[in-house]
Amino acid sequence: MTQQTAAWLLVLALAGPGAAATAQERRIPLQALRSGITFVRPEIRAMQEDDFSNPGMLWVEKGAKLWGAGARSCASCHAEAEKSMKGVATRYPAIDRASGRLLNLADRIMHCRSERQGGPALRYESDELLSLTAFVSHQSRGMAIGVSIEGPARAHFEAGREFFDRRIGQVNIACTHCHDANWGKTLFAETISQGHPNAFPIYRTEWQTAGSIERRLRACLSGIRAEMLPYGAPEYRDLELYLAWRAQGLPIEAPGVRR
């Protein structure tokens, strides 16, 4: 309860002058935002809340080992992740100044690995990439999401919103039809969440492993019988930016646990 209260105070603190300008565009008002963890069964919730039984912590622990491994390790530039990576996950996806591309946290880690560390490229959804992403995201736990949609990010934000509203797949529905219009209702045995990206990478009991936001988005696409875009497709990044903006102020939970 106290943790929840603290999170809400943080939300209120952030919903300052900047938020007023965009309040018109928000379909779920900032005060009504609810993390996905509030829609799951109590057992799953207990699993996430206890750091020992949260299986996602296995990936965090592995990520901590990888952080310091090798001659040109992450730690050799960024030193202690507990300090240098604090708050980083709240700002992604973000524009990479050098290339002008929109990168999410996993892209950034892959980029660092291939450009700066000279190691073998990390594969999407590999254990190593998930571990590092979980470890870095974990450093921002409890901090509020606050991505920038200004400047070059604006076009990506608009594209993401457009994707969110576009009817796709054989079922012919858009993200908005579930996650804006019908959250809180049930779909088969599940309660539909608001679709916030604040706990990734998540440990999903259905997967029996940890997975990225991209994997989760693909699961949604498959559910509505739409074409699954390949990993790394720019459409996912645009959508992730829109989702992060939509979840502005929600505290990061990484590593989250979902059903």
Binding site: S53, P55, M57, L58, K62, Q208, T209
Partner: peptide, 8 residues
């Protein structure tokens, strides 16, 4: 309490 990472 022991938690082991294994895909079983």
């Amino acid at each position: 309490r022991v938690l082991i990472q294994h895909n079983m």
